[in-house]
Computed example of a mutant assay.
Amino acid sequence: MSQEIKAGDKAPDFELFRADGSTFSLYEQLKQTNVVLYFYPKDNTPGCTKQACEFRDQYEVFKEQNAEVVGISSDSDESHQDFEHTYQLPFVLLSDKGNQVRKLYGVPKKFGIIPGRVTYVIDQSGTVQYVFNSLTKPLEHIKVALDTLKKLNSTVRT
């Protein structure tokens, strides 16, 4: 497993396929916006559904803060498409088959088996501004990400 990525670190670049077959590149996205990158255990589970729906409900606020939300799990593209459609998710879900990106970021597993829930706020320079790791507080991820973006944007504007 790679070393855990912390605030102040350079975010590792990666490319994964989107459900529609196109490629998502972190550094290409960072040319346009900040990125809120969140790793979650599994589509259609109670905590992950709450988290995704809260990101959905706050999505316009993230856009106002010049940020794109990107969710990653090891679920299949078909599972992501179903999850996106069922809950009308407006942001990108990426399938990390084999957990290469999860390992690249050093996202820990709970009890050695349950994929962790970790959110990274990455600014346009590729620097990780904040990391929040909590499997049991899915809604807190959205709050801390927005707070971090608001602070980041207030320092940029002044």
Rank of each mutant, 00 (worst) to 15 (best):
residue 93 L to H: 03
residue 79 S to F: 03
residue 146 L to E: 11
residue 119 T to E: 04
residue 140 E to P: 01
residue 71 G to P: 00
residue 136 T to V: 15
residue 127 T to G: 06
residue 113 I to D: 15
residue 46 P to G: 06
residue 61 V to D: 15
residue 91 F to A: 03
residue 128 V to L: 04
residue 143 K to W: 08
residue 118 V to A: 02
residue 73 S to Y: 00
residue 153 N to T: 05
residue 17 F to N: 12
residue 138 P to I: 10
residue 65 Q to Y: 06
residue 134 S to T: 06
residue 152 L to W: 01
residue 77 D to A: 14
residue 55 F to T: 01
residue 22 S to V: 04
residue 83 F to S: 00
residue 153 N to R: 09
residue 76 S to N: 14
residue 90 P to L: 07
residue 149 L to E: 03
residue 134 S to F: 05
residue 109 K to M: 07
residue 82 D to I: 08
residue 120 Y to M: 12
residue 145 A to N: 05
residue 89 L to Y: 03
residue 91 F to H: 02
residue 13 D to I: 02
residue 119 T to S: 14
residue 71 G to M: 03
residue 66 N to M: 09
residue 95 S to I: 04
residue 64 E to S: 11
residue 47 G to K: 06
residue 114 I to T: 14
residue 40 Y to H: 07
residue 29 Q to M: 09
residue 106 G to C: 04
residue 4 E to F: 10
residue 30 L to F: 00
residue 77 D to R: 11
residue 147 D to W: 15
residue 37 L to T: 00
residue 45 T to V: 06
residue 57 D to Y: 10
residue 100 Q to H: 10
residue 18 R to I: 02
residue 21 G to Q: 05
residue 56 R to Q: 11
residue 152 L to K: 00
residue 158 T to G: 13
residue 74 S to I: 04
residue 1 M to Y: 12
residue 46 P to F: 14
residue 70 V to M: 07
residue 74 S to E: 10
residue 37 L to P: 00
residue 63 K to I: 13
residue 15 E to A: 13
residue 23 T to L: 12
residue 110 K to Y: 14
residue 133 N to K: 14
residue 65 Q to I: 06
residue 22 S to R: 08
residue 53 C to T: 07
residue 91 F to S: 01
residue 50 K to Q: 15
residue 90 P to G: 05
residue 104 L to D: 00
residue 99 N to D: 15
residue 132 F to A: 06
residue 133 N to S: 14
residue 47 G to T: 05
residue 67 A to C: 12
residue 94 L to A: 05
